[in-house]
Design a protein around this nucleic acid. Structure first.
Length: 483
RNA sequence: GGCGCUAUCGUCUAAUGGUUAGGACAAGGCCCUCUCAAGGCUUAAAUACGGGUUCGAGCCCCGUUAGCGCUACCA
C-alpha cells in the first residue's frame, strides 16, 4: 500500500457525545474502514477549565454503543500514543521551543485585561481585531527578566505578512485566505497547556494522520494550521470539512432546541442502527435511491466525494421513521430480548412473562411500533388488564345493548376448549348471527372490553394471546364497569 | 463590522450543460381491513433574486439577498 489511510476523531471531553460528533466520528470511521485504514480516537482535553469527570469513559461508551470502534486511542495504545492530549504536554512544549528558536513564535506577557481593552478599542475604530504585537518588540533581555519575575506569559505564533494561503478541501474545493487578517494565535497558554491549534497540528503529524475530517466550524482555522505545518516543515494532511448539523430554525444544532447527546437518544429508546443510518444521511448519500443502510452497507458505499456542502437540519420525524424501519428489520427473537430489557425497566418489572407469551406479543405488535417501549405503552393490555377505557371508543362502540351481546358471546366462548385464534372467530361469528348483527359491531365491543382501547392487532390475535380465561374475565369486568 | 462557507419541495436529498427536476420523511386521498398499523397505489409540494456565458443553465461566471461558521490563554 502506497499511502495508508489514518483518520481520527478528536472530541473534547464535555461529558457526552454530541450527535454532530457522532456524525463526524462515523464519517471518519466509515472512511477508514472503506479504505482499510486506521481510525484513531484522540481526546482533546487541553482546556482545564472545562474538565468533566468521567467524560472520556462516557464518550467511549457512546461510540461503542453506536458500533464505532477505534483502532488506536485511550486504552488501546498504538505506536504513537498517548492519545490523551493532557498526557502529551512535554511534546507540545518541545515543539513550541523549536518555534521560539526559529523565530516563528514569541513570548507574550500581555494581561488578558489589556487584551480585552485593546480589542474593544479596535472594534470601536472598526479595524480588524487582532493582537497588536506589543510583545514582539521585547528584547531578549526584557523577555528573560519577565520570565524571571514570574510574569505569566503565553507563546504566540508569528503570522507572516502579505501571504495568500490557499488549500484544497475535499468537500469544499479550493479555499483562500489572506494572512494579514489572521491573528497571532496563542499556541501555548500560560498554564503550560497548548491551545487547540498547536495540539491538533502536532498530534495529527505525529500520529501520521492522512485525512483530517471534521466539522465546518474549523474551516476558518485551517490557514493557521497550514502555517504551522510550514513552520515545522511537515507535510499537510488532506482536509475535508463537513457541513454542520442544524436546529429546525437552521442555527447550529444546540442543546436549547432539543436533545443533542447520543446518550439522550439511546435512553429514549432509539436503535443505534436508526441513529447511525440517520446521521449518515445528514450530509451524505450514495447517489442511489437507497435510504435504509446497515453499517456494513455504509462502509461499502461511503465516499468523501459525495459529502455535500450545505448544513442539514436534524429532523426527528425522519429519525422516528427510520427507527420503526430498523425495528421491523429485527427478528422476533432479537425483539424479544430488547423487550425483556425494556420490561425490566418498566412498571411491570416485578411480573413474570414467559418468552413464548412475549414472542406472541412481539409478532402481533411489531408492525405497529416505532420504539420498543411502544410494545409496553401502546399495548399495556398484554401486561395488565385495562385500568381504564378509552372515552371516545366507549362513546362510539359501547351501546346500551353491548353488555347483553357480550354476555351471549362469553357463553359461546365458555364452550371452547383450548381455543385457537380461529375458534374465537367462529364463536364470534356464530354469536353475531344469532343476534343478527354484523361481526364488526361485536368486535369493537370486545376489543374495548379486553384492551381498553380501540386500536391494535387483530381481535382474534389479542384473544388468543390473552387466552380464554383472561379474556372472559376482562369482558365480565367491562360489563360491570362501563356504563 | 471583518473573513470564510452555503443556497433544489416543510425536512433529508438526487439530477455534475439537454429529465415531464427523481426519491425518502411528513401531509392529503384511494385500496386492503374488525380497529390501529404495515403494505400497495396516488395527490400536492422546490431550483432565493437579478444579470451574464451558451443553441440550451438547478448545474458555469458576476452581483444581490439570506442563513450559518470563525473572529478567546474554548474546542
Amino acid at each position: 500500500m502506497a499511502s495508508s489511510v489514518r483518520v481520527r476523531f478528536a472530541p473534547s471531553p464535555t461529558g457526552y457525545l454530541h450527535v454532530g460528533g457522532l456524525r463526524t466520528a462515523l464519517y471518519n470511521f466509515l472512511f477508514a474502514r472503506k479504505n482499510n485504514g486506521k481510525f484513531i480516537l484522540r481526546i482533546e482535553d487541553t482546556d482545564r477549565a472545562r474538565y468533566v469527570d468521567g467524560a472520556v469513559e462516557k464518550l467511549i461508551d457512546a461510540l461503542h454503543w453506536a458500533g464505532i470502534d477505534y483502532d488506536e486511542g485511550p486504552n488501546k495504545n498504538g505506536d504513537v500514543g498517548p492519545y490523551i492530549q493532557s498526557e502529551r504536554l512535554e511534546i507540545y512544549r518541545k515543539h513550541v521551543e523549536q518555534l521560539l528558536q526559529n523565530g516563528k513564535a514569541y513570548h507574550c506577557f500581555c494581561a488578558s485585561e489589556r487584551l480585552e481593552q485593546m480589542r474593544k478599542e479596535m472594534e470601536a475604530k472598526k479595524v480588524d481585531v487582532k493582537y497588536d504585537r506589543t510583545c514582539l518588540k521585547l528584547s531578549e533581555q526584557e523577555i528573560q527578566n519577565n520570565i524571571e519575575k514570574k510574569i505569566p506569559f503565553v507563546v504566540r505564533m508569528k503570522i507572516p505578512e502579505h501571504r495568500t494561503i490557499a488549500f484544497h478541501d475535499i468537500v469544499r474545493g479550493d479555499v483562500e485566505f489572506q494572512s494579514d487578517l489572521i491573528d497571532d494565535q496563542v499556541l501555548l497558554k500560560s498554564d503550560g497547556f497548548p491551545t487547540y491549534h498547536l495540539a491538533v497540528v502536532v498530534d495529527d503529524h505525529l500520529m501520521e494522520i492522512s485525512h483530517v475530517i471534521r466539522g465546518e466550524e474549523w474551516l476558518s482555522s485551517v490557514p493557521k494550521h497550514l502555517l504551522l505545518y510550514e513552520f515545522f516543515g511537515w507535510e499537510v494532511p488532506q482536509m475535508a470539512h463537513l457541513p454542520l448539523l442544524l436546529n429546525p430554525d437552521k442555527s447550529k444544532l444546540s442543546k436549547r432546541q432539543g436533545d443533542v447527546a447520543v446518550e439522550d437518544y439511546r435512553d429514549k429508546g432509539y436503535l443505534k442502527e436508526a441513529l447511525v443510518n440517520f446521521v449518515a444521511l445528514l450530509g451524505w448519500n450514495p447517489g442511489t435511491e437507497q435510504d435504509i443502510f446497515s453499517m456494513e452497507e455504509l462502509i461499502e458505499q461511503f465516499s468523501l466525494e459525495r459529502v455535500h456542502k450545505s448544513g442539514a437540519v436534524f429532523n426527528l420525524e425522519k429519525l422516528n421513521s427510520l427507527n420503526a424501519t430498523h425495528l421491523r428489520k429485527k427478528s422476533d427473537e432479537e425483539l424479544l430480548k430488547i423487550l425483556k430489557d425494556e420490561l425490566a425497566k418498566s412498571k411491570f418489572a416485578g411480573k413474570h412473562f414467559a418468552d413464548e407469551y412475549l414472542l406472541q406479543v412481539v409478532t402481533a405488535m411489531r408492525e405497529r411500533v416505532t420504539f420498543v417501549k411502544d410494545f409496553i405503552e401502546q399495548s399495556s393490555y398484554f401486561f395488565e388488564a385495562p385500568t381504564a377505557y378509552d372515552e371516545t371508543a366507549k362513546a362510539k362502540n359501547w351501546k346500551p345493548e353491548t353488555s347483553y351481546q357480550l354476555k351471549l358471546l362469553t357463553a359461546e366462548f365458555s364452550k371452547l376448549e383450548n381455543p385457537k385464534k380461529e375458534d374465537y372467530e367462529i364463536a364470534l361469528h356464530k354469536t353475531a348471527q344469532q343476534l343478527q348483527i354484523g361481526n364488526g359491531k361485536l368486535i369493537h365491543g370486545v376489543r374495548l372490553a379486553i384492551s381498553g382501547v380501540s386500536g391494535g392487532p387483530g381481535l382474534y390475535d389479542i384473544l388468543s394471546i390473552l387466552g380464554k380465561e383472561e379474556s372472559m374475565k376482562r369482558i365480565y369486568t367491562a360489563i360491570e364497569t362501563i356504563k
